[in-house]
Design a protein around this nucleic acid. Structure first.
Lengths: 246, 246
DNA sequence: CGAAGGCTTGATAGACCTCAAACACAGTGG
DNA sequence: CCACTGTGTTTGAGGTCTATCAAGCCTTCG
């Protein structure tokens, strides 16, 4: 089992780790976020947080675990549209899009903080800087969708997988959940396929290619990236679309 | 040449047609939008409005024409990530994402209204209802990205093309630019391919299939949809993700 | 009338899928 | 302690959708 250096500060809200990586907040704004009422809830793996068609009255902040956004087609197949990690609010959009057009579910046991829309709206009305920050967050979300679209439209399975592994490295690092050269990836090959528009079998074969070329070491949910530059190149990865500060 | 009933009101700003289709605005808010300073600019086909890497200081409202959002890969291939029609502001995100992570360009001669970020920010700060409306607009944009992702990941070329034709019907209709059963589609087969992750050749063949099955009549840039229900079914299309009112 | 861009067609190739089965490993219960 | 079960991974063998390459055709426009 590999271990990774974790930079997160204990006793702070992961929402702050995340927002700090994309905007600059004043102390007052940070305090307003910490004062938000949150109901913590632990959910086991593979359970739905919100479902397609729901009309949520609260948003869900990921505190720990791994969460995804997905849609199931009329024929039962699934498309995962994004992975969400501690600090993310995958259903922030429900603040303004009242009916869910997709579902959000856990991939592993995860703990979530539920924040009432009402409270969130009050805080955003009071602190325009926070409203801008959250808007920006949803825009970055959209940027990730675009990048995935590019991948599914124009990149090979090989590039797509490498690209996704790069994206997660950068995003997890930004909130202190990845080391310099790897992270815990609690995602099955089947889920990777659903996320990238590939079959499980093909994901498996491509992962073996990546392994045999020494681009990744992946075992038991731990990913080690021996040569970051090389993996980035293989995935045609440019982190610009994540719009991180610095 | 077919002709379509146009419901747009003359002398009003197409931005209002669009926003009216997704939110309810007060007279005061509508007036504030009309009072925004706009510099009208006509651009010929296939020219860039903003480019990947730019730091725009204004947003671009489409007044007429057809515009797309795209990215070019390192190997030169292109992925179109969305089509934009009168009333849309394809680079609204630049308000909060300062560096463009993709380009926006015209597909045909289009007229655009350029609105300085500064003015926009002032109006949004003054009218929270407008801020919510614009945020909602960018969220619907993201919902369209997600739906395209699903298509590229899990739907066949046939379904993808049918789906796109359905989406445009609904969106154009919402701003009064489509009739009940068709619209002007000034997009080449090559551009369709770039949008859907397909080769031009394959787009051509699938269009012929759709034609031979009587699902579409497409000639000289005019699309006629004889059987809306059938095309919807063929594309597995459900307009929920567009989050239109009513 | 010639040129250019877009559309159409044919032939071939390849990336990825589907089906089917075996393997590995962790957790469970007797 | 060891079968047993379940989930996830791996491997093999076709099969198919879609890409690529290469022409020819058609329409528009100068």
């Amino acid at each position: 089992m590999m271990s990774f250096v974790m930079h997160r500060q204990v006793n702070t809200n992961p929402l702050l780790w995340k927002l700090d990586s994309i905007v600059s907040l004043s102390d007052e704004e940070r305090q307003a976020l910490l004062d938000l009422p949150m109901a913590v809830k632990v959910m086991e793996a593979d359970s739905d947080i919100v479902r397609d068609g729901d009309r949520p009255s609260e948003c869900c902040l990921v505190l720990s675990g791994f969460v995804c956004r997905y849609k199931v087609l009329s024929d039962g197949r699934r498309q995962i549209m994004g992975f969400y990690i501690p600090g993310d609010i995958p259903d922030l959009q429900s603040l303004h899009l009242h009916v869910m057009d997709h579902s959000v579910g856990t991939l592993v046991t995860s703990s979530l903080a539920l924040i009432p829309h009402e409270s969130l709206r009050r805080v955003l009305a009071q602190y325009p800087g926070l409203a801008a920050a959250f808007w920006r967050d949803t825009l970055i979300d959209a940027a990730m969708f675009r990048e995935w679209m590019v991948g599914m439209g124009r990149r090979s399975a090989y590039q797509r997988i490498a690209h996704l592994l790069c994206e997660l490295q950068v995003r997890l690092k930004a909130v202190g959940l990845a080391g310099e050269d790897g992270y815990e990836l609690p995602v099955t090959q089947n889920e990777l396929g659903d996320a990238l528009g590939l079959s499980t079998v093909h994901v498996n074969r491509v992962l073996q290619d990546l392994r045999s070329e020494g681009l990744i070491v992946l075992r038991g949910g731990s990913l080690h990236i021996p040569d970051w530059k090389a993996l980035q190149l293989a995935g045609d990865f440019d982190p610009g679309y994540l719009h991180l500060k610095r």
